[in-house]
Nucleic acid binder design. Structure first.
Lengths: 357, 357
DNA sequence: TTGAAAGCGTTACCAC
DNA sequence: GTGGTAACGCTTTCAA
């Protein structure tokens, strides 16, 4: 169908959408004046401005995205979610992140468009194409990984970017960073478990690629080491593999008395494995979820968890995005400032207790 | 930043992106020939076509979305997710739907852009604006509701649309429909529970607005009525309200011996309420989730559930979308054909059993 | 088979 | 303050 095809599919005539030319004619001025008036730029008399705005409104004029993009560059920002069937509510939480970012961006800020890719590489490829096609003004990259193809691409193309999470390697000045300060929170988890009297603690993470779980494990391990608590980390990127990784740990006399997981689904897996092994949570085994969610409240027993302020994280992303798009950094200046979102205190529920003697 | 600003933010010079003019010059032909060659249109000699393609590739040319949209209309399709904090993994599953649709659309089909809105009304407003702004070539509308503002909007603007779920009222010929045939599956749930010997069954749905749960409840109720099983439906759109709705049902001697829910989170709520009331699942109470998910497998006990083929649903959406965009319906022809995705057999797990005598 | 040129809707520069 | 007009990159019609 042609862009302005007045031929409505069912044969009726759809009104041709008005352009600034129509508005200009209606207001009896030139298109330049209309453009200035509509964009709130100075150089138009108040009376003319009012008349133009009224006519535009009356005619139902809205700017054509394509035409505006052609002149001024794209207004939307892209975010490509990697949907590779990993464990956890990572994918779902990304939408909360987007909601938060959109909130910070406001109604007339840029809009965030989410796309779904099957792998990091596909995501990187799409982002590359779309940048070359001038489809998006910038990108948001959530859930960074080790050796992340998306970041490799974004080091090559100068797209304004907000990276959510840790980055290995250099960051171009077009990037802004937002990180969740969960290292502090996970250190507190270590103290919490040590205080309860646990002497052997394990952590289950969802695959080796993601960087956030690594940092969490590091922080937890360090805090536990300080208290002379034995610590080990295992990983499994699907529910099945996570179960297979945890099970061997929990048999034998020297087993950990507490398991910390990266996300809610992994915690569910641990609960399941424990139940099958006849270990009573929390008495025989404490379980702690690294990412709180509704599922954590509903688990049996309900799961002690580290809060996950996605919405706030999203708002921080929105603000960082505004900075990235403005490119408000002097050439050759210091690396982009980082936004840090802090995590609150552990939500203690029924899945943690002192180890049984 | 201007669209083709050669000034890279860090001061280096970014290569100006090539246009068809550059390709034309490199290949020694006119832009018209380049356009024809690049779009696989007839009227170009094989030799010229090959040369053009090679040059385009060599220069790293990609079509500018905005310029193409300006002439030929937008290529992308929008889908606005309503993220109002309701129960269930509805939001998350929408991304699976999108992944499935994208799969059916193929790599060079239109891409699906997901946006997040806080309410149905906001979604409708956005879709209206974006249609007028020629931002999207069409829309996908998932999770239809009673009195759905999005559909009201789409009856007014002639946007090619794929509606996923039931529709109350007339459908313009620009619409295509995809429905999940879960009525049949829920009828089978009724038979299943009746066969187990349940005489009183309840269903918990997540709020009254969504149409899918209504149809499910209707199908379940009808199947149970045939077997003289008493049936009642209650609803609650958040975890708290769902719990408040279910609790009163489960006290008293005449309580249902089985509860069917619309989604996994609601089923978790029922498990939780049952536990607090000292009802042992499945012996004192059977619980059945209407939408299967990883959470259903991990619940304690694991939840018997109705499969949810969201990926296939997505593929059907993709195909329907192609039809909608092509507008392949004769003017004034029969209403758009519906695509139906059928649901497999109940996955029986540990949360259902015959009622205790 | 190819080339020239007219749009598409908006913005921004330069005159007046 | 305001009006003309040249871009922006691509598609498509019309001639050659």
């Amino acid at each position: 169908m042609r862009p302005n095809d007045p031929e409505h599919p069912d044969g009726t005539r759809a009104a041709k959408r008005p352009t600034i030319v129509d508005v200009a004619r209606a207001a009896g001025v030139s298109t330049a004046v209309v453009s200035y008036a509509l964009n709130g730029r100075p150089g138009v008399s108040p009376a003319t401005r009012a008349r133009v705005l009224r006519m535009a409104d009356e005619l139902g004029w809205r700017p054509a995205t394509a035409a505006r993009s052609l002149r001024s560059g794209p207004g939307a920002v892209g975010i490509v979610i990697v949907h590779d069937g990993g464990t956890g509510s990572r994918v779902a939480s990304t939408l909360d992140l987007v909601a938060g970012a959109q909130e910070a961006l406001g109604a007339d800020g840029p809009t965030l468009a989410v796309h779904v890719a099957g792998s990091v590489d596909e995501a990187a490829r799409l982002m590359d194409s779309w940048w070359t096609e001038r489809r998006y003004a910038g990108y948001v990259v959530p859930h960074t990984r080790a050796d992340d193809a998306r970041l490799t691409t974004l080091r090559r193309v100068p797209a304004p970017t907000v990276v959510v999470g840790d980055v290995i390697g250099p960051s171009p000045t077009t990037w802004r960073h937002v990180v969740l300060d969960d290292a502090a929170a996970f250190a507190r988890v270590g103290t919490f478990l040590a205080d309860l009297g646990h002497a052997r603690v394990a952590m289950l993470t969802g695959g080796d690629a993601l960087l956030a779980p690594r940092r969490r494990a590091r922080a937890l391990g360090a805090a536990l080491a300080e208290r002379d608590v034995r610590f080990q980390a295992v990983s499994g990127d699907t529910a099945e593999r996570a179960a297979a990784a945890v099970r061997p740990l929990l048999v034998g006399p020297d087993r950990p008395t507490a398991v910390v997981t990266d996300d809610d689904v992994a915690a569910g897996v641990v609960l399941d494995v424990a139940r099958r092994l006849g270990l009573a949570v929390p008495w025989d085994l404490s379980v702690l979820a690294g990412t709180d969610s509704a599922a954590c409240q509903l688990a049996t027993p309900s799961l002690t968890a580290v809060p996950y302020p996605v919405r706030e994280l999203g708002r921080a992303v929105g603000h960082a995005l505004l900075g990235a798009l403005a490119g408000d950094l002097a050439p050759g200046a210091v690396p982009p400032a980082s936004g840090t979102v802090s995590v609150g205190n552990l939500v203690v529920r029924g899945s943690t207790a002192p180890p049984s003697a």
